[in-house]
């Protein structure tokens, strides 16, 4: 009876240790998520929120990506 109790407690400790150990293998998100109100500064206006882009993020993205291609001389000098 005593032996069974002993092995039972050992098994419980081992299971607990395994659970604690596995917690260390967990994956945390790598990108910081700013909680609402954590950033204390002034609000930042996104670059596409202006007269030039009419709040169209897609237009802005296309313009910036097209401009970025100017850095690729394999495409620029063809």
């Amino acid at each position: 009876m005593k032996r069974r109790a002993f092995f039972g407690s050992v098994a419980a400790v081992a299971a607990g240790a395994a659970v604690v150990g596995l917690v260390g293998c967990g994956e945390r998100p790598q990108v910081i998520e700013y909680k609402q109100g954590k950033y204390q500064g002034k609000p930042y206006s996104e670059p596409w929120k202006g007269k030039q882009w009419n709040d169209s993020k897609q237009d802005w993205n296309v313009a910036v990506d097209t401009r970025a291609q100017n850095q690729n001389e394999y495409k620029r000098i063809k």
Binding site: G50, A68, Q71
Partner: peptide
């Protein structure tokens, strides 16, 4: 950026060693 331009350091780079823009594009 709000004008649809990239940082001048990269746009000015003579040998285009310095690239700037969307991570996937560069």
């Amino acid at each position: 950026l709000a004008e649809g331009k990239l940082p001048l350091c990269a746009e000015m780079c003579a040998t285009k060693a310095l690239l700037a823009g969307d991570g996937e594009v560069i």
